[in-house]
């Protein structure tokens, strides 16, 4: 009787789920085996994914095509990424890891530019505008929100935003005893910001717990399903 692929997958899934859940009792070698094996497998899987979905289409395949077609211009164009990739490999050798700094500088420069532009155009300006627009009665009316509700919610939102930003304002004066103290008004506003930050973190915590709980439920469900399949329980 041939063993189905789903059964093997279910067995593996069942086994590793049990091994990991055994941590609820306490740390044990089986849990360690599962974790170490998972790290190895996941790393290998990521390496394969990167190879097939990034390196192969962007480096090896073009090089192969250049080799086949003898396209010098395209080859010259590939020279820079090839050289950069080789330089990056020098990071594996501590003695010559300095050569990889050029590529790292390239990545940092590009990342910095992308971050600047994205933060500015994608978050800062739109979010500030949205805070202002919350008091826009026409926009509220378009969304079937009453003026009272819009003003009230807008005020809460604005207060939360300002006080939260004040909470993250860490400019302070130094006291004679060396400790730091924020300005009085900032301190008061930051205290209000604590409340808003606390509310936000509470909501986030509930979401994290919900996500974890969902994952646990999914795992238990898979265990139950495997047991059902294994024992033929309908």
């Amino acid at each position: 009787m041939p063993v189905s692929l789903d059964l093997i997958t279910g067995a593996l899934s069942f086994l590793f789920t049990i091994l990991i859940l055994s941590y609820l009792i306490g740390d044990n070698p089986l849990f360690k085996i599962a974790v170490y094996l998972f790290v190895g497998v996941a790393s290998g899987y990521v390496a394969v994914v990167i190879f097939w979905q990034a390196l192969y289409p962007k480096l090896f395949l073009p090089l192969w095509q250049v080799a086949l077609t003898a396209d010098i211009n395209r080859g010259l164009f590939l020279l820079a990424p090839l050289l950069g990739s080789l330089l990056l490999l020098f990071k594996l050798f501590p003695g010559s890891s300095g050569a990889a700094r050029i590529v790292m500088a390239f990545l940092v420069g590009a990342g910095a530019a992308v971050t600047i532009a994205g933060a500015l155009s994608g978050t800062l300006i739109p979010q500030v505008n949205a805070t202002i627009n919350f008091f826009d009665m026409r926009s509220a009316a378009a969304r079937n929100i009453s003026a009272f509700e819009a003003l009230g919610n807008g005020a809460i939102l604005l207060l939360g935003l300002v006080t939260s930003l004040a909470y993250f304002h860490f400019g302070a004066r130094q006291r004679p005893d060396g400790s730091a103290k924020r300005f009085g008004l900032i301190e008061w506003i930051a205290w209000l910001g604590r409340i808003f930050i606390g509310i936000t973190l509470g909501v986030i915590f509930a979401g994290v717990y919900a996500a974890a709980l969902t994952a646990l439920i999914e795992r238990i469900s898979s265990l139950v399903n495997f047991i059902r399949v294994l024992f033929g329980i309908p």
């Binding site: 739109p126 979010q127 505008n129 949205a130 909501v203 986030i204 979401g207 994290v208 996500a211 969902t214």
Partner: peptide, 17 residues
Amino acid sequence: SSAQSTPMIQPYYESGQ
């Protein structure tokens, strides 16, 4: 989104992004 990331995505929804 996951439940854990929704609170931080909510402002983008409120801003229309």
